[in-house]
Design a binder for these strands. Structure first.
Length: 551
RNA sequence: CCCCGCGUAGCUCAAAGGAUUAGAGCAGUCCCGUCCUAAGGGAAAGACUCCAGGUUCGAGUCCUGGCGCGGGGACCA
């Protein structure tokens, strides 16, 4: 049992003895904001003082008196208005340092078992062939990949899935555009087709139908080429971003499945003006079209088909779809319809949404052509990073520049609450300093360098069990708990915020302290540095950010 | 008109209902020219946490009502 559980246990029983009944899980115990207040603190005494008929401090004293000795805890004090603070023993902190340093593939430092043994499919990124991979997809990828890793760190078998819209109106617009302007790139063809859509609805609608029916040779060829080119291109981006998908799904396959499914459930769907719709109002939602009056599946029907395709391809306990929040209401409707046609899968499909990438001036839209594409941003960042990388110790400066660029982008996305929109700020996106991904990478590389130097000078890392508790060690101890919380809440930012704090503490310490200094404390300091290195490494991994050893 | 989300330094974000000073970074001012990596460290400055009520021992955080911004609301995704 770890220290935190031991404290919770002790508190629960001590509280019981003074008439406050709280289960171990319900005992509020938090990390202190200030180490002067110890490592853990609880405000239970303040909360239950009134009911217990005594002052908060009085109750706190009574609780403390009933706590007895707790494994790993050195000191317990009542402070302030009635807070109970817990200070960890140097040995408990030393233990965390050892565990961090012992990090290995079987026993990852910071991992937990809260989702032990589950199989979860995570669907994210979802770019559309024929359209640009824009920064919204970059955002979805960063969030989805990190979620996948967080789940893996909590004992889950994760299946990464990517669902791509290779049929639909956007494809028709692009192909129509390409037919008009053969010289245009696919992106340009899409913009042109979109611009001209209002005045050429019928012609583009006809192309749409032809794409679905695969009956026109010329369109088929164009379609095949454009699709293949897009997909191939996306793969290079996934590689750069550090994502490897296990399963790919396409709307061209889910469409027919969806149509069949909708047609098979007339009790769920209604006919309306020639289209097949789902009356969401019955469930406090809104009506949506599943099959158009032309007989084509909309995204709604395709998503039902996708559920079946997923089930078909790989059994799982839960399937999570990651998208931007603009699809929230849409998903409520689709998931309700899915529940009605496949009641046996109830609760197995979840929608996790994140905010949208926005410009200060407003929404970006590929239809308007004012998108920042994922690759142009990455390319721009890589350029900025390249000049710096040239002065670095890295052998391969091109790779380093790319790794730094990925870190910069992902960090910006993952440092904030997922549900909030991101205001895209070019200057900040291109910044490699301060509160940024490269800052974390740099701290990691620095720690690696120190450990290397110690090795070269024959200084062996050794934890001093009795070392005075210091900020770094106390922070390290929190890592597994932070990861657990992040996994539980599905919020990567907890990890981001934490490793930023850790990196900051390390950099400050580094600036003021010669680590490999030949003193008797050197072995302990090297061990501490090595533990920081391992923690930053795993923390960055959880964010999907590469952690080069040299910069 | 209805539904959902968000309003915290000039800007981008933190803050588990908790502890005199609501934390970072960027931008602007100033200091440290390297000793294990300066993509670093430090100093000063910058906030009636959108407004008005309420709940609570305690509210940036919860509730109610406004205001502002974003998203969604039948054949786009």
């Amino acid at each position: 049992m770890d220290v935190r559980d031991a404290i919770r246990n002790a508190l629960s029983s001590a509280l019981g003895r003074v008439g406050v009944s709280l289960t171990k899980e319900d005992v509020p115990l938090e990390h202190t904001a200030d180490f002067a207040h110890g490592d853990y603190a609880t405000g239970v005494a303040l909360k239950y003082a009134k009911g217990a008929g005594m002052s908060p401090r009085e109750l706190a004293e009574k609780v403390v008196a009933g706590l007895g000795a707790i494994d790993g805890v050195e000191k317990i004090e009542v402070a302030g208005a009635g807070f109970i603070n817990f200070f960890l023993l140097p040995q408990a902190l030393a233990d965390s340092i050892e565990r961090a340093r012992a990090d290995n593939a079987e026993e990852k430092w910071g991992a937990n078992k809260i989702n032990g043994g589950k199989k979860i499919m995570v669907e994210y990124t979802d770019p559309n062939p024929f359209k640009e991979f824009h920064i919204g997809h970059l955002m979805s990828n960063a969030i989805g990949e990190s979620l996948a890793r967080l789940l893996e760190f909590s004992g889950t078998n994760v299946l990464r899935a990517n669902y791509q819209g290779d049929v639909g109106l956007h494809v028709a617009k692009t192909i129509w555009g390409k037919l008009q302007k053969t010289e245009a790139s696919w992106g340009e063809a899409y913009v042109y087709g979109s611009e001209q859509y209002e005045s050429n609805k019928e012609a583009i609608g006809a192309v749409n139908k032809l794409v679905y029916e695969k009956s026109d040779e010329k369109i088929n060829t164009l379609y095949k080429d454009g699709r293949a080119e897009s997909l191939e291109h996306f793969e290079t981006l996934y590689k750069t971003l550090g994502t490897k998908f296990d399963h790919y799904f396409f709307e061209s396959e889910t469409g027919p499945l969806g149509v069949t499914l909708v047609r098979a459930h007339p009790e769920v769907f209604d006919d309306s003006e020639g289209a097949t719709v789902f009356r969401g109002e019955k469930f406090g939602l809104h009506t949506r079209v599943f099959i158009t009056s032309q007989g084509l599946p909309t995204y709604e029907a395709k998503d039902l088909g996708l559920a079946e395709a997923k089930k078909e391809k790989a059994p799982f306990d839960t399937s999570i779809t990651v998208t931007a929040s603009e699809q929230n209401d849409y998903f409520s409707v689709v998931l309700k319809a899915l529940e009605l046609v496949h009641p046996e899968w109830q609760g197995q499909f979840e929608h996790v949404s994140h905010g949208m990438m926005r410009f200060a001036e407003g929404k970006m839209s590929s239809r308007k052509g004012n998108v920042v594409t994922g690759e142009s941003l990455l390319a721009e960042l890589t350029e900025v990073a390249r000049s710096r990388a040239k002065e670095s110790r890295a052998e391969d400066t091109d790779t380093l520049a790319e790794q730094v660029a990925v870190a910069a982008v992902k960090y910006q996305v993952l440092k904030q609450q997922a549900r909030k929109d991101i205001i895209f700020n070019r200057e900040q996106a291109l910044s490699l300093e301060g509160d940024s991904g490269p800052y974390l990478q740099y701290a990691h590389a620095r720690a690696c360098a120190v450990v290397e130097k110690a090795k070269a000078e024959g200084v062996e890392a050794k934890v001093n069990e009795n070392a005075e508790p210091q900020e770094l060690a106390r922070l390290l101890h929190r890592f597994p708990e932070v990861v657990e919380r992040a996994a539980r809440e599905r919020e990567s930012r907890h990890v981001t915020t934490y490793i930023l704090t850790l990196a900051g503490a390390f950099n400050r310490w580094y600036a003021n302290e010669q680590i490999v200094d030949g003193s008797p404390e050197a072995p302990h300091k090297v061990a501490l540095t090595d533990a920081v290195r391992a923690t930053l490494k795993n923390g960055l991994w959880l964010l999907g950010i590469p952690s080069p050893d040299k910069m």
